[in-house]
Design a protein around this nucleic acid. Structure first.
Lengths: 203, 203, 203, 203
DNA sequence: AATGAATGAGAATTCATTCAT
DNA sequence: CATGAATGAATTCTCATTCAT
């Protein structure tokens, strides 16, 4: 039964679902808290029981959805039988492709996320989705294989991710100065350069 | 004399100055058009004579300020007597340093610009500051020297700029996951890898 | 015509009148700003053009009404042909009677004023009603006649007024522990003791 | 150990303590029942088991605290060995000094009490603090000694107390038009005039 | 007796925009 | 061109109270 705790979870979940629906179909600014609670079928006050304000709600949604996108891409990578034989750049390019394809196919979600693809890599984000930490550690270890120190690997991973995230979001959303299809090969090429063994040997 | 045209310019200019002052000292959302016109000393209706709404005003400010930052950095590069003997990566690293140092020293302005450092590279932006096109062409030609095609050079320049812009803005504004001083050496190193002759020879 | 300034005054005046009507017929807490603007026939925003909030409005109303009550009582005193032959206590008792009778007859207004009968004796209050200063000076000079220093007279006038104000408001509003008719003779008697020449000679 | 009744008392007591803490540190309007129950560590519903609403709670607190202040002052008077040789005005001035000094030193409590120093002299107040009736009777009998009738004494005591209460609260809280130190000598002097034998002989 | 999640009416306030002068 | 009083829909947020457990 556990109907109290269950119900509590249900109300919060219904608000999150309703908000996601409205934020992606309209936009965040065009969505009033009033709209959210009406669609969720809960009272106005209930909203403030679970969220500080609209932006707290947005943050939680973005964190949840982005972690989902990233973890899903990682799962696809793991499902590949040839994963262990893939080079470091190949694994990055594969992940990038999974994530950016998702963004391209879900423009509304991309608009919601905008540049905040990395927001989920925060304490709050890890708490929401345990698998996320695993993903990060896998890619950090890949970079470490290129003879970078652990700390250096973290930083390179961060810069690479920020680059991919901002370029692909902009490509999907404004298609200017380059469309998604125009820019992604360049991004992949640059990714390969950044992660090729050659460079690390030089170092 | 031309006091009429002059006056017209004055009003628009006063609005821009007042808005810049308020947008950087408070924030855009915390600034009402009312505040802007009060500080500018013009009537509410006058605002709508020159700007469509607050975001039109914001765009114009950001475009103007970012083009200024970029052109200023380029001027400093041109002032160097050894410019012609600098390698391609060296010139990029120099520009990056000029721009990001400015951001670091002007946190309020960075908050205003946020990720929109590249907004000025648009038709409207070129119209505002003629020197801007020159800057872009110079760096595109540098990349072309690395044996990339003209179109490819444009794209690489775009991805590089997007990377620098998003990483440095985040470093200045949130200092998470890395502070400015922690991340910039990595960015410069990655920049050098991306622009070194070696890679292009490989291609 | 002067229809702009005229209209401006009208709107503010209509809000004050509507609020007074509602504050006295219902109560301040039971009156929403919404009610006020609806009755005044102005837009919600117009309210905030003239008043900071409900309590700013209330203060202005109380100041205006109390100054009116006091000045009216003073006018009645001046209309008496025998004013000059009245003793100091007699003049105070007369004023007290005028004011407290008004309170007794206008319980709703008394509820609004509550203890704030003296609120009008402030810079803002004097600005609203010029005659008020004159009233104060007359009674201070009366007390000075009792051989008190000017400063001492001001203080005694203040304590006396505070006493009358708080006792009579409570008598009218709660009738506990004494009703208006029960307590006023005592107040008048005490007033006479405090203002009789005998005391001053002793001093 | 009677843990049920004890617990019941504890909950009510904890609510009173928490509310007193919040009402004095913030203010009554700024304190929500939610804040009170959270600080008291009881459930929201429990509040409504013991108090009708916030103002019922406030009344009970004010009654309890004011009766404490008054009874404490009276105890100090009784502790004086020369009490029996003190004149009527001297005893009043002593009590006034005790009470008003307390108010001056406890501005936050004064803000809570505001004008309601006499609220405790009600049936409900007597029920809370048995000693209170004794205090009142002592001072009434003092006034009766001045040849006033018992009924008259009650009224004079009431007016005097109201005067002291309203003047001293305002002095402590707003310091306008007179500060505590400026106005108290005048109050004491007026108190002495009102209670001196001379006046009563005149009657 | 005690709980605390849920309620939802209602309050205050903001602010972009208009338009008569 | 310029003004600024007026608008009023829209929005956020509060909070006393209830009631099933």
């Amino acid at each position: 039964m556990a109907s109290v705790a269950e119900n509590k979870y249900k109300k919060r979940g219904r608000i999150l679902d309703a908000a996601y629906e409205l934020f992606t179909s309209k936009s965040v600014t065009e969505t009033a808290i009033d709209d959210v609670v009406r669609l969720a079928g809960v009272a106005k006050g209930t909203f403030y029981l679970y969220f500080r304000d609209k932006y707290d709600l947005l943050d939680q949604i973005v964190m949840f959805r982005t972690s989902e996108i990233i973890v899903d891409a990682y799962k696809k990578l793991c499902e590949r039988t040839d994963k262990s034989s893939m080079s470091v750049p190949q694994q990055f390019v594969f992940m990038t492709k999974q994530i950016t394809e998702y963004l391209r196919k879900n423009k509304k979600v991309t608009a919601l996320i905008d540049g905040k693809l990395l927001l989920c890599f925060s304490e709050r984000g890890y708490a929401m989705n345990g698998s996320l930490r695993e993903v990060k550690e896998h890619f950090e270890s890949l970079i470490t294989q290129l003879k970078y120190s652990a700390e250096d690997a973290k930083k390179r991973l961060y810069v690479i991710t920020e680059m991919i995230s901002s370029v692909s979001c902009r490509a999907v959303l404004s298609e200017k100065p380059f469309s998604f299809d125009e820019i992604m090969p360049t991004v992949n090429d640059m990714l390969t350069i950044l992660l090729s063994e050659v460079n690390t040997v030089d170092k």
